[in-house]
Simulated scan of single mutants.
Amino acid sequence: MSATQFFPLVDVAGDAYERGRQHGRAVPERIAAGAMLYRAQLSHRGLDSATIDTLARSMVPQIQAFDETYLEEMRGIADGAGTTLEDILTINCRTEMLYGFARMQDDTMRHEEMEDGDCTGLVVLPRRSATGRLIHAHNWDWRQECGDTCIVLRIRSKNGPDILSFTEAGALARHGLNSNGMSLTGNAMSCHKDFQNGPGAPVVLLRRRLLEATNLAHAMRAVYGAQRYCSSNMILAQSSADDGCGISLEAAPDEVYPMLPQADVLVHANHWLSPVALIRLKDPGLAARPDSLYRQHRVETALRAIEGRGVSWDDIRSILADDFGYPDGVLRSPKPGDFSSISATVATTLMDAANGVMWVARKPYEGREFQEYAL
């Protein structure tokens, strides 16, 4: 298989601006394609170029309030790629920009038109793992074009753990692991409180902060302490050579609902699981992605069915390739999405954070060839 069929590895180091500049210089074509993709998605919803730029700039105060260095890194990415800061802001804040515009238009857009992808994540604790180490894995279902706009970003840090993140080119993070054994995956969620209480931290930036965490408690405090603009689920784990722990945090804008592993397994798709959340929240997005219900069930059932031995990486690859309900399976094959887009599983990611290793398959509906990346 040729290298072009895998995601490129981008190495960065130095201060925030320098890291960004190295990132931008390494993959300018992918950054340009990503910015073009989201500008097109926004324009299909009636936004002209000037409005997109205005919305992008409106995110600057929220980013500065959350972490000024993240804005400096975005400036570096823009300069390195030879593009505008507005393009980089759009890549990192497209969800908030899109929903924010909908709020300005008195909620005229349907929830399914603002969907941020259908994903399935899982953790298997060391006691259930064939290797004796924690398994963390994820399917990212989003725009098919992102198979050509993503990278694996390796960040060398002077002031914290090194990071290995699968992300969109130009974005600060999506999911990944760090040199302290922390790992993160995130799934889209929705509730009736989203975008009701003013601006908050963009989801991409919150994920980056979690990947910078020194330990699981630090990461959890970051979620609980963040001002959140919209709902999301974050599966966090910390691994060592022979131990590990994982937790799922269902984060609404105003409250966090934790879910711990059951029988040493944790699975999350795109709907609320916490009994308390189910009582308190309405989920307007579930009608757009009802397959979340059976994706959750099928992954849980498949993991429970493995008895008498540990869960292997081959088991995980097979479970995340389940295409029951084609094309709306755990593995999503390309299908029409909103506004002429194509929805698909962009990547399957497997993480052994204790060893600092990640395996990623690009467009896994075409074939399950995994490339290894390591800290």
Rank of each mutant, 00 (worst) to 15 (best):
I316K: 03
V330H: 02
I235T: 12
S248W: 00
M259F: 10
G310C: 04
R289F: 10
R295N: 10
D242G: 09
R298L: 14
E300C: 10
A302T: 01
D243G: 12
K335L: 08
E250D: 08
A241V: 11
N233H: 15
R317H: 00
I279E: 15
G285W: 06
S240M: 06
A222I: 03
L331F: 02
I235D: 02
G225Q: 10
L266H: 10
H268D: 13
L236D: 01
I316H: 02
S248E: 07
I279Y: 13
A237D: 03
K335C: 09
P275T: 08
D243P: 01
A263V: 05
H271W: 05
I235K: 02
R304S: 11
F324H: 13
P290M: 09
C230F: 14
M220E: 15
A288E: 04
A321Y: 03
D242C: 10
A252I: 05
Q296E: 13
L281S: 08
Y229D: 12
L266N: 09
G310H: 04
S333M: 13
L293D: 11
I319W: 07
R304G: 01
S239Q: 13
D254H: 11
W272E: 01
G244K: 07
A321E: 01
A302P: 04
Y224P: 01
G337R: 04
A252L: 08
R221I: 09
I319K: 06
H297Y: 13
S232G: 12
R309Q: 06
A288Q: 05
V265D: 10
R309A: 01
S239C: 14
F324V: 11
I235Q: 12
V330L: 08
T301I: 00
C245S: 14
M220D: 08
Q238G: 05
A302V: 03
G325Y: 03
F324C: 08
T301W: 00
Q227E: 15
Q227Y: 12
A263C: 09
A263S: 11
A263F: 02
R228A: 11
Y294W: 14
P327C: 04
T301L: 00
R295S: 08
A269W: 06
L278H: 07
G310V: 01
V276N: 07
G310D: 05
D314A: 13
